[in-house]
Amino acid sequence: MIFLCTAMYNEAYPFIKQFNLRKDTSHQKFQVFKSEEITLIITGVGKLKGAIAVTYLLSNGTVNASDLLINIGVCGTNNTNIPLGTTFLCNKIIDHETQRAFYPDILFTHPFKEASVETFSTLVKDNNMDLEGDLVDMEASGIYQSSTLFLKAHQVFFIKIVSDYLYTDNISKDSISKSIEDQAIPILSWSHKVESGLLNNKKEFTEKEKEMLNQVVKNLKLSSTMEHQLKQLLKFYWLQYGTVEEILKQYMDIECQSKKEGKKHFEELRQKLI
């Protein structure tokens, strides 16, 4: 799943329109739009709102190792050499108020420029202000801190599109959507590539094997230490032969009357597995 979060509806609109996202009316507190592959939440402006919305979104279900969270939005800069509309992937996030810095892992190749972003609690209108970050926004530090409770640092991305040189008076809602419109498809096609690269093909015991294992643990009256040892032994066997069904089958009908008897069977099983 690709989780998108934007502060404002106008930032979300190009994605809603281009990817046919449908409003999920089961959510009352936030506006959430969905397709099979994308879930988009509008967080509201500010790092606290961003953190709350992302926590709400990610704690609503399970997250997987291939899931990505992308914060997309417009930002300002006082560097007038950067053309308006330039898209950046942020490699450093500075929280202006606490002066703490956060670093999303940039493990994947990407088509964007990179920059640092400084998150402020209030709108920055003074372009003579001394800034630590290349860019200025109002959500990134909150979203980073909340999202990394659920995801690893390489699954979280901050994509910022420069909309102004810290004069915000001329920015219309339409111009915000327009700044993002051209970027929606490149951002999503890159995200899908990363997501498929992370798809987890991790092999593990089948449900049947797990059930059999639980039954054998019960049958042999194993202690929790012995259960842990058995799991480790079975894993070692399973990695070599691809199944543990046959070997567990031999212990499915044994019902030990005592722990001593169980220990005897456990030792025998141990020898078979090494």
């Binding site: 892992d105 493990l107 990394t148 690893k152 640092a153 390489h154």
Partner: peptide
């Protein structure tokens, strides 16, 4: 940091 993936970081 606590939320890192050693195995994937080894790739880059």
């Amino acid at each position: 940091r606590s939320h890192q993936h050693y195995g994937l970081q080894k790739k880059s």
